[in-house]
Design a protein around this nucleic acid. Structure first.
Length: 533
DNA sequence: ATTAACGTATCA
DNA sequence: TGATACGTTAAT
């Protein structure tokens, strides 16, 4: 059956309108990847065209009401473009209720608009005052979660179907995640709502109430107390915020705009820690939006968090970091897969100290942008796993999935010399390589690296604690023309003199330092640094 | 008329 | 329960 027949039983507004692309978000602006499951199904990519789904990289983050949508009360379209103030714009835009599906101008409501609960993640989406007053909120939240969540679809069919529908929705934003709801660390599927980042200690409020709307400078609690959180929280689609969160200024009680514009506030916010940003998010709805600006969250560090929770995951997606540290967490495979597939702009990922059973999620990920991957001390990571991770899938003759990686950290792994051949073959742009404390690698690894094109690109190499390395390695490293830093500390077979063999060949090298120190009486540690002016 | 793809039914 | 199929809607 089609979604068009999805009538709100007792909902009053009739057929639910199907949402459509905004055509403006980053996802909408992308071209089809041609590689994902859904692209491969498309006729244009040689598939049968049965699935009829959009490319996974092109999942709209802000699906809009169709432009044929009209107000249930007055029959007219959205008229927000005819006015200037935020307040008036809201009154005259079309809002779709996630519970009864009714689309209406808030100004056309007889009962007043202040008790509606706006869904910040999707344009023109709220729980209308009528439904809210009738107390439908929490019950519906559990059972009709799909519609609440993604503002698409949702026939009033059987309960089971509704749950499954939500899954379909979420699958659209993942490549191969087996779970659509936000996964819990134990692999379960329970999700929670909101932007909360409990990992960041402070919990930003869910700024979804209308009532404090005209008093945004005040730190005020929500005017309407939140309904008690249901035991099973809704599953929903997590969307990143727009690139420049609206509005552009704060409105004061008198109706004029506060002298500090969004851009000015954003400059102030750049001086705050992530913890402080979370506090600011509780001030008001506008600040909450502004503080979600991804420019404030380019780096997110959740390392050593005891558990990675669904709110943390949605918080990460909302902020779209460029650099993400998940080192030494208990993140599950499902969670990692869910995350990675929703962070198309991720450049740096740290999963050091996590179990390979979780990290193996990367084997199914599409992250062509990734520049830095830290796999140090990943539990049970072997050569074969590295091959699985770096090599292209067997059915494709194309390049590996980390072709553009420039920095790889493999410290403390149980790798052999075979691993270096994988690096040479599948990470051709590597400039920084950390193999420290890989105690099984030998001179052969250094030979493999230095006879390959990597010889020209490697600038930093860490071989500290590789106890099988001999002076041969030191000699081999001499032919690396771009090398700036070599760490050979704790290589117990190397003598102080062998360090001197490493004469840096580049002209820019003004000084090479040979640091000798001894952390253990029985061991000579050599560290050689090139110091550039 | 054509294309894209949403939302739900159904399969495995 | 995840994967797949497909009628139908929205845009052009």
């Amino acid at each position: 059956m089609s979604g068009s027949k999805a009538l709100g039983g007792g909902a009053g507004s009739g057929a639910r309108r199907r949402r459509t692309r905004c055509r403006r978000c980053q996802a909408c602006m992308r071209t089809e990847c041609g590689e994902c499951h859904f692209c491969k199904d498309m006729k244009k990519f040689g598939g049968p065209g049965r699935m009829k789904q959009s490319c996974l990289q092109r999942q709209c983050t802000a699906p809009v009401l169709p432009h044929t949508a009209v107000c249930f009360a007055c029959g007219e379209a959205g008229k927000e473009d005819t006015v200037d103030s935020e307040e008036e714009k809201f009154s005259l835009c079309l809002m779709e209720c996630t519970i009864c599906n009714e689309i209406i101008h808030p100004s056309c409501l007889k009962m007043g608009k202040a008790d509606g609960i706006i869904n910040d993640e999707i344009p023109n989406c709220w729980e209308c005052p009528k439904c809210h007053k009738e107390g439908k909120t929490s019950k519906v939240r559990v059972r009709d979660a799909p519609r609440l969540a993604c503002a698409r679809g949702g026939a009033k069919g059987s309960r089971g179907n509704k749950i499954r529908n939500s899954k379909n929705q979420n699958q659209r934003t993942s490549v191969s995640s087996s779970s659509s709801s936000i996964p819990t660390s134990n692999g379960g599927g329970m999700a929670s709502s909101g932007l909360l980042m409990s990992a960041m200690a402070a919990s930003p409020c869910q700024p979804s109430r209308l009532a404090p709307r005209s008093q945004m400078m005040k730190r005020s609690p929500p005017a309407v107390p939140s309904p008690p959180r249901p035991v099973q929280m809704e599953r929903h689609l997590v969307r990143p915020p727009p690139a420049c969160p609206e509005p552009s200024c704060l409105l004061l009680d008198c109706g004029s705009a506060h002298i500090m514009t969004r851009d000015a506030w954003l400059r102030v916010f750049t001086y705050l820690s992530q913890r402080e940003l979370c506090v600011c998010m509780r001030v008001c709805r506008t600040w909450s939006r502004w503080c979600c600006d991804k420019r404030l969250w380019t780096q997110m560090d959740l390392s050593r968090q005891r558990s990675i929770t669904p709110p943390m995951l949605s918080g990460i997606i909302r902020r779209q970091p460029v650099s993400l540290n998940l080192g030494h967490t208990n993140i599950s495979k499902k969670q990692l897969m869910w995350l990675i597939n929703r962070l198309p702009g991720l450049l740096e990922l740290d999963v050091s100290g996590c179990p390979w059973t979780s990290v193996s999620a990367l084997c199914q990920a599409v992250c062509p942008c990734l520049k830095l991957l830290d796999l140090s001390r990943v539990e049970d990571l072997k050569d074969s796993h590295l091959r699985e991770l770096l090599a292209p899938p067997p059915d494709e003759s194309r390049a590996g999935r980390f072709q553009n990686m420039t920095e790889l950290r493999l410290a403390g792994l149980d790798l052999t010399d075979a691993a270096s051949r994988l690096l040479v073959r599948h990470t051709p742009h590597l400039t920084r390589l950390d193999l420290s404390h890989c105690v099984n690698i030998t001179d052969q690894t250094v030979r493999n690296l230095t006879v390959s094109p990597l010889r020209e690109s490697l600038t930093h190499i860490n071989l500290a604690g590789c106890v099988k390395l001999t002076e041969q390695s030191v000699q081999l490293l001499q032919c690396c023309s771009a090398l700036q830093t070599v760490d050979l500390r704790s290589c117990s077979l190397l003598s102080a003199e062998s360090g001197q063999l490493l004469s840096f060949p580049f002209h820019s090298c003004v000084e090479s330092k040979l640091l000798l120190h001894s952390s253990f009486d029985s061991e000579i540690n050599i560290s050689i640094y090139k110091v550039q002016q």
